[in-house]
Design a protein around this nucleic acid. Structure first.
Lengths: 205, 205
DNA sequence: ATTCTATGTTAAAAGCAAAAACATGAGGCA
DNA sequence: TGCCTCATGTTTTTGCTTTTAACATAGAAT
């Protein structure tokens, strides 16, 4: 086969792929459109046939990430059924697992500074991922006495925040804040204590 | 007074000040050394007399931020004494207040991608801020039966993570994830539930 | 077969980080 | 007082980046 035809064939995917790798390695700041183009075997200007520019390329990587993320959360949720508690805890673990398995996507989504309202599709992908977590929280909420039950959206926001905080501060090596505990344990124990606070699991280790 | 003398007088501070403003407005990616120099009334090259480069300028802003942050946490901790619970909750609120009052510092610290181990001073400033929170957590831990008391460092890591997650996801407008609740309420309720899970506050709203 | 159009390339403008060579002026020292 | 020196800024240059415009190619459609 020849070096490369004039037409790449599926440059768009190749560029996203390259962007993901580079973002994961060099961070959202160090990532350059030119380098992604070179890695895809193409000149920088070619990128503009498929993306509006550097930001748009990152945004598309993030979009892809949110879709994968939503799928993972969905799958985790299903895997825990019919136990509301098992389903919920599985989604929590899925958050960290996603950050580990898809660092490029994760960075594009949460550390690149792109707005989730950049495009309707992106906003919708975010909303969907959110909805899965909120559903898991809502299911689990049913086991709380109705009068002292927090809104499911607040419940899920707490979990999302704790998960995100653990990943950002202790899992991703960039900040370097080495905690004495593995992030997985940290998150699991944190969520455990939180759920105990809601009366959803009995007060024993 | 003349336009400006050949020697600025205190260019270093002026540059940090400019950097903080610009970072807060344009984000860590949009911030440029050149623009900070211009805003300080100086050519880009002058910056290199006071900083090693762009990264170093950001790092110094972050360092200054960690010092202020540590001071705020310390003050909040003291203000809550002698009640361990009040002191602890005050430090939690201080986290969010800091992010609101010093956006430039906050971004330089947590969103610019600089490593906390970049310099010994930076690492030490981080360690100090950490220590305040850990002390507050440790004090409060004393009220937990010893056998089911998590390590104070884990305790404080949970709170730090939740606080950080709330700020990142719901307080800073950039991501745009508007939650239906004010971040302050979200954080306060989240910490409340967590503390209940530890048996540190009685099970009523 | 010829044209149209999607998808590339070259070339060029504008901006940035960083380093080198040069300029200025303030403080120390004879 | 007058010179020297060195800290602090400026110009200038290099090599990168993003982005746009003009041009080239080949696969598809007519």
């Amino acid at each position: 086969m020849p070096k490369r035809a004039y037409h790449h064939g599926n440059l768009k995917s190749a560029l996203i792929e390259a962007a993901l790798q580079l973002i994961a390695i060099k961070g959202p700041t160090g990532f350059t459109l030119s380098e992604a183009a070179k890695q895809a075997g193409v000149t920088p200007a070619a990128v503009y046939r498929h993306f509006e520019g550097r930001e748009d390329l990152i945004a598309e990587a993030a979009l892809q990430g949110y879709v994968i993320f939503g799928d993972l959360m969905e799958h985790a949720y299903q895997s825990g059924q019919p136990s509301a508690l098992a389903a919920f805890e599985a989604t929590g673990r899925a958050y960290l697992a996603f950050a580990r398995k898809f660092p490029g996507h994760y960075i594009a989504m949460f550390e690149s500074g792109i707005s989730v309202n950049r495009t309707p599709e992106l906003a919708q992908a975010v909303a969907r991922a959110n909805a899965v977590l909120e559903k898991a929280a809502s299911d689990l909420s049913q086991h709380i006495p109705e009068d002292k039950r927090p809104p499911a959206s607040m419940f899920s926001a707490h979990i999302w925040a704790m998960s995100h905080g653990v990943v950002e501060l202790f899992a991703r090596n960039s900040p370097g804040r080495a905690s004495p505990f593995p992030p997985e344990d940290l998150l699991e124990s944190g969520i455990g204590i939180y759920l105990r606070g809601l009366g959803l699991i009995p007060p024993d280790s």
